[in-house]
Write a protein that binds this DNA or RNA. Structure first.
Lengths: 107, 107
DNA sequence: AACACATACCTCGTGTTACGATGTATTACG
DNA sequence: CGTAATACATCGTAACACGAGGTATGTGTT
């Protein structure tokens, strides 16, 4: 999938991945894989960014003698998803412009 | 509208704007305005990029004693739009993941 | 024991990109 | 004569996704 097309999507994908229950980096990548592929370097960059923006909080916990960083979505994070959903109407209208324009030419 | 969300859309918007008839920078901005806003610096950067990629061709013509650069879409440009439309299924599935996830939580 | 592999985290450099600021020139209007 | 609209362009900046590479521990295999 086109990288540029991903850019507005990845942040909210990560937020959606931790929406129902806290998760950690490695699991987020696996969970998102069927939906959208992202590399580790990308994910950890995004997690840092979302934390700095207050859209999620971090908690370090031990699991089977190994450290994991669990991420929990904040209210601001949930709002971010809602904003995204609200903006989607514009995206759809852009898509329609791009996909429908010119089709009446073929008639 | 979120800048990141625009990134995968602007190129194809510009291509769609010249799809039915040749156009020039200033007019493209005006035509796209109801659909998506973009600044002049952004547009001219995009036009250069699309030309370099062979997605459109340029022709300079005089109009009322003033020079205009008219842009015409190429076959590759049309293919670019088709690729975009094909990728849209993935985008929709991502949107569904983001928007539907968690809604069954409220029941 | 030695080795590969999965888990789990991280940093750095690079290329792409949208934008504001700014500049140049001409035409139109008052 | 000045202001706005038309029409093009460049430069620097900040955001971002990614590959390459690094560190460390557990698990499975031979």
């Amino acid at each position: 999938m086109d990288i540029q097309l991903k850019r507005g999507l990845l942040d909210v994908c990560v937020l959606a991945a931790i929406r129902n229950e806290d998760s950690y980096g490695y699991k987020i990548i696996k969970d998102l894989k069927p939906c959208v592929e992202l590399s580790e370097s990308t994910l950890y960059t995004i997690l840092k960014r979302l934390e700095a923006a207050g859209l999620l909080t971090v908690r370090t916990a031990e699991h089977d003698g190994r450290l994991r960083k669990y991420y929990r979505i904040t209210q601001a994070g949930i709002s971010r998803i809602e904003t995204f959903k609200a903006e989607w109407k514009e995206v759809i209208s852009i898509y329609k412009f791009v996909s429908e324009e010119g089709e009446n030419e073929q008639a």
